[in-house]
């Protein structure tokens, strides 16, 4: 999108949004740096910005976000060509419960029990063994040098914020769960701005990249992690669609 000619209303919308605050600045910069959307997908996002430009930056953000959700209903960004066999997903406990409840349209109590069973390292039985782990696309990481290696090899201090910092997840006081499972019948998508939508911790993959890299917390936010001087490093990242629990050799580890 760098130097191409854009309609005036799109340019006005991008400029206004970029000046509106840190999130707008980040999203617009990411949109300019995005390489893996098709022309049609990029046009959809730009048109949403142009059409809502006169209504203000809140309207721009809302229209943009809605079109992001629309676009990612189909695979976007291309598939990872050399995917790992073992995947890791980090989630706060209650966020995982909420995701499982929504994905399977079950009660909160049942979703909580599913997470408890998985956390104890036991197998799910009956229909629970076929439940989905996520309602929407799931963001995952892995061991960058070993396709069968521990996806959380980077965790040195065993602290939840260490994981959140490296993966660019929001701060929380909830217990963190690390899900470790086999990539069976799952295709990994390269992440794009459409997947990130309005999430501030994201950087689009560079041209030629097979997958994305996380956008970690700034070091000055990590003062309390591992004593001091913790410097979070980016981790490989991609997304997959809805995944069932069954047959994945799923292990769940809790961090305090």
């Amino acid at each position: 999108m760098g130097n191409e000619h854009l309609p005036d209303e799109v340019t006005r919308g991008l400029d206004a949004w970029s000046r509106s605050g840190p999130l707008g600045r980040r999203v617009v910069a990411n949109l300019r740096a995005e390489h893996f959307l098709t022309d049609e997908q990029r046009t959809i996002l730009l048109e949403a910005i142009g059409e809502s430009a006169q209504a203000g930056t809140d309207a721009i953000a809302q229209a943009y976000e809605q079109q992001c959700w629309y676009i990612v209903r189909q695979p976007v960004g291309g598939f990872v060509q050399q995917p790992p066999r073992r995947l890791g997903r980090a989630a706060d406990r209650e966020r995982l419960v909420a995701a499982i409840e929504k994905a399977n349209r079950i009660t909160g109590q049942e979703a909580r029990e599913v997470v408890d069973v998985l956390s104890r390292g036991e197998e799910l039985e009956g229909r629970q063994a076929r439940y989905h782990l996520n309602a929407y696309n799931a963001w995952v990481t892995w061991h960058e040098n070993d396709p069968d290696g521990d996806p959380f090899v980077f965790v040195q201090h065993g602290e939840p914020d260490e994981v959140r910092a490296c993966l660019g997840l929001p701060a929380s006081t909830d217990q963190m769960l690390l899900l470790d499972y086999r990539r069976i019948n799952l295709r990994l998508q390269r992440p794009t701005v459409a997947h990130a939508a309005l999430h501030p911790y994201f950087e689009p993959p560079m041209p030629g990249s097979d997958h994305g890299w996380t956008s970690p917390w700034k070091p000055d936010r990590c003062a309390s992690i591992g004593g001091s001087g913790f410097n979070p490093l980016p981790r490989p990242e991609a997304l997959h669609g809805r995944a069932r629990t069954i047959g994945r050799a799923l292990q769940v580890r809790a961090l305090p």
């Binding site: 929504k102 996520n134 309602a135 929407y136 929001p170 929380s172 997947h195 999430h199």
Partner: peptide
């Protein structure tokens, strides 16, 4: 501070 891929109701 909604996390990536999370909906507002979640």
């Amino acid at each position: 501070h909604v996390t990536r891929g999370e909906s507002l109701d979640e």
